[in-house]
Computed example of a mutant assay.
Amino acid sequence: MNNRTRELTMIALFPALMGATAGISIPLFNLPPITLQTFFVFLAGLTLGPKKGALSMIIYLIIGAIGIPVFSGFRGGLEILTGFSGGFLVGFVFAAFFVGFMKTVKILNNNILSNFTILLGANLIIYMFGAAYIAFLTSTSIWPTLSGLSIYLIGDLLKITTTLYVYVRIRSAFTYEWA
């Protein structure tokens, strides 16, 4: 397989995986549900790098916005992006870019602990976008909204750990360093 075909396949892989696992979610009343989406956001950043990882997430948002059911609970449409999940979904683009960018800084990604810290920072980016948008929609302060997201913390730590476990095993075959 030539490089260009491989790049396009890898970019398309993550929106496909996110859409395929969209039905796996734990609803949380008025908050966005717990999903596997961030697992794939992190993995896209780690394996594709900053630009291609972010592009992969933009494609995911476009696919969902036009109505294809790739968002949590197999939902799709622009109303999902304008609802409480919208900030989190937009945060995916920036988180994937952040992870990919931080992976290019060689002194920061020499061990599992530094990679864990990078993914924790990416998760914080997603939280900030999500909390800021929810605060905007509800006309409240961002700080109480952000503290309300603590319900996601244990699941997100588990997803970060799982992402690192998977990445360590696949990085030699699926890493952006081939590009």
Rank of each mutant, 00 (worst) to 15 (best):
M1W: 09
N2C: 01
N3M: 12
R4Y: 12
T5P: 00
R6N: 13
E7R: 15
L8T: 12
A12W: 03
L13Q: 04
F14I: 03
P15Q: 00
P15M: 08
A16E: 09
G19Q: 00
T21D: 01
T21R: 01
G23A: 04
I24G: 06
I26T: 09
P27Y: 06
L28C: 14
L31K: 06
P33D: 10
P33N: 10
P33W: 10
I34E: 05
T38G: 00
F39E: 05
V41Y: 01
F42A: 09
G45T: 04
G45C: 02
L46M: 12
L46V: 04
K51E: 06
K51Q: 12
K52H: 14
L55T: 05
L55Q: 08
M57D: 07
I58A: 14
I59T: 14
Y60L: 02
L61S: 03
L61M: 13
I63S: 08
I63R: 10
G64H: 11
A65D: 11
A65L: 09
I68F: 13
I68Q: 11
V70M: 02
F71D: 02
F71C: 06
S72Q: 07
G73N: 13
G77T: 14
G77D: 05
L78A: 13
E79S: 15
E79G: 13
G86E: 05
G86Y: 05
G86T: 10
G87T: 03
G87H: 09
L89A: 02
V90C: 05
F92N: 11
V93N: 05
F97S: 04
V99C: 08
G100S: 05
F101E: 09
K103S: 15
V105N: 15
V105R: 13
I107N: 14
L108H: 11
N109V: 15
N109P: 05
I112E: 11
I112Y: 15
I112G: 02
T117K: 03
I118W: 08
L119A: 10
L120P: 08
L124N: 01
L124I: 15
I126M: 13
Y127K: 03
F129E: 00
G130L: 03
A131F: 06
A131D: 07
A132K: 00
A132R: 01
T138D: 10
T138Y: 06
T140Q: 14
S141D: 14
I142H: 03
I142F: 10
W143R: 12
P144G: 02
G148T: 01
S150H: 10
S150M: 13
Y152W: 07
Y152T: 02
L157V: 13
L158M: 08
L158F: 13
K159C: 05
I160H: 06
T163W: 00
L164D: 01
Y165E: 00
V166I: 14
V168F: 15
V168T: 12
V168N: 12
V168R: 07
I170V: 05
I170D: 00
A173Q: 11
F174K: 01
F174M: 07
T175A: 04
T175M: 02
T175N: 14
Y176L: 00
